[in-house]
Design a binder for these strands. Structure first.
Length: 482
RNA sequence: UCCUGAGUAGCUCAGCCGGUUAGAGCAUCUGACUGUUAAUCAGAGGGUCGCUGGUUCGAGCCCAGCCUCAGGAGCCA
């Protein structure tokens, strides 16, 4: 096989006349002579020009959308408008045919819903090519950010033996034969017969294990798949998703917020710097899509400006209590336009409230802190009750426009007694988490961490609106295809 | 899980008050043209109207149940 050159490099070439070979997939074949070829190296295609008078007709017939081809010829300045360079084909080989009667992708606009049904082929579209390039860049940037600051990448277990993590419904992991379930005398399932000799599940969070590592390495992070068996059918939930969870010793809540904001800005900037073609494509795609919406539903900023705005401005930081005050006196609350009206301190914020704060009031990312203890997890550090006796914890949620909660984190409760008392109140079995409590028994230290939903980040940076379109093969209720 | 909407050709969609042979654009195929940019022009083929049952002389259309998808809500990242 001849050595191939990547199309992205050829499109930037300044030397003409050289003989080159490209291999890729046919996007369109126009006028019986112009092949648009893409090899995935970039979003832009190269045009290969066939001399159809001197090419076998049966070969020309096989140049169809989706076919894999190898093209060798001279790299020349394009004679036509619309592209700078093109290849004058001397040799053309079909590597893999694509029956045009059956290949579902055609050079036309397809709906995202249809492409979701053919997720195994949607990589070949411009949109998904761009989305997954950006996804890659963001993933790489996350590792680079942490590595450059001396964080240790920790692989926490995917299969977990504790069901006390308290972050939602879990998927059971078992080798038990469902048609022949081993039972105890009292009729309950005998898990001693199961693979691990006890009930096990897929992880819903690596945080608790992450904290163990942070108590030795100082700064660690995890970045791996996470599983939630919630029956959620929304544009921002998946049953299998990827989460980034840093955990830092000797950090308080402010340090935690600083790190999260810095991380988000770093990875967004990295994507802008390294995927400019892709983000530009996604930005204009979004403009096209929004043309169909009424004026008042369109975004004020295009995607690129929105990302830049996010980089250039500080995230708004305020406490839950301050947020409640703003919401209480807000127009939609006074005019009773909220479905859930804000009247008392202590209620959890609904997504309509979060959206109001982020999209209407501040018009930028918002970090909410110090939530009521009642509505947050047991491991969050307890504040002293305020003058009204209201109990809060050092939690922080970062809310992004159009996405909602993208980060959830907290300073952790490092005081053993306070932690045990809270676990008791919230019915968390302390015996099962004895290993976790050991961190508080031996050399406990102030520490903090957060979870960043990776797909929600990809949503924000690509401007896509459905989370099923930013992960290659989405797992959602009633859907585990491919 | 709840609320709302949708399911008609490979894709995107139209289909009147229940009435004869279910339409269009794109794609595909055939031919023409040949520096095109989702090429263009002419012609052709292509349908289990989501599934099951019911009402009716007659159902794509009405009714019931189910399935799937989308949007919103809850749960959360």
């Amino acid at each position: 096989m001849p050595k191939r050159t990547k199309i992205k490099d050829l499109l930037n070439a300044t030397e003409f006349g050289q003989q080159v070979t490209v291999m890729g997939w046919v996007k369109t074949f126009r006028n019986n002579q112009f092949i648009a070829i893409n090899d995935g190296s970039g979003i832009n295609n190269i045009q290969a020009v066939v001399d159809f008078n001197n090419t076998d007709e049966s070969l020309l017939k096989r140049i169809t959308t989706g076919a894999a081809v190898s093209v060798t010829g001279e790299l020349v300045e394009s004679l036509g408008k619309g592209q700078r360079v093109e290849i004058k084909v001397q040799d053309l080989e079909i590597l893999g045919d694509s029956d045009p009667e059956k290949f579902p992708l055609q050079p036309k606009k397809h709906s995202l819903e249809f492409l979701r049904e053919i997720a195994h082929l949607r990589f070949r579209t411009n949109t998904f090519n761009a989305v997954f390039k950006v996804r890659h860049a963001l993933a790489f940037a996350v590792h680079k950010f942490f590595n450059d600051q001396g964080f240790v990448y920790m692989h926490t277990p995917v299969i977990t033996g504790s069901d006390a993590e308290g972050a939602g419904e879990m998927f059971r992991v078992s080798t038990i034969d469902f048609d022949n379930i081993p039972r105890n005398d009292d009729g309950t399932v005998n898990y001693k017969e199961d693979f691990f000799g006890k009930p096990t599940n897929l992880t819903v969070s690596g945080q608790l294990e992450g904290e163990l590592a942070a108590m030795a390495f100082g700064d660690i992070y995890t970045f791996g798949p996470t599983f939630r068996a919630e029956n959620s059918n929304t544009t921002r939930h998946l049953a299998e998703f990827w989460m980034i969870e840093p955990e830092m010793a000797f950090y308080d809540l402010d340090d935690n917020m600083d790190l999260a904001e810095k991380l988000l800005k770093y990875v967004i900037k990295y994507a802008l710097d390294n995927c400019s073609d892709e983000i530009e494509f996604l930005s204009s795609r979004l403009v096209e899509e929004e043309k169909q919406k009424p004026q008042n539903e369109r975004s004020e900023l295009n995607l690129i400006d929105k990302l830049k705005f996010c980089l250039e401005n500080d995230f708004e930081r305020l406490t839950y209590t301050e947020a409640i005050d703003i919401l209480k006196s807000s127009k939609p609350n006074q005019k009773k336009q909220f479905k859930y009206l804000i009247d008392d301190w202590g209620a959890d914020l609904q997504s309509e409230h979060e959206r109001y704060l982020v999209e209407k009031h501040f018009k930028k990312p918002v970090i909410l802190t110090n939530y009521p203890a009642e509505i947050k997890a047991f491991y969050m550090r307890q504040n002293e009750p305020d003058e009204h006796g209201r109990k809060t914890v050092r939690a922080m949620d970062i809310l992004f426009p159009g996405i909602g909660e993208i980060v959830g984190g907290s300073q952790r409760e490092e005081r053993l007694e306070k932690l045990e008392q809270r676990m008791h109140e919230m019915h968390v079995p302390a015996e099962e988490l004895s290993w976790y409590l050991d961190t508080r028994r031996f050399g406990s230290a102030p520490h903090a961490g957060f979870g960043l939903g990776f797909e929600r980040l990809v949503l924000f940076v690509t401007g896509m609106t459905n989370i099923r379109d930013v992960i290659p093969f989405p797992r959602t209720p009633k859907n585990a295809e491919f």
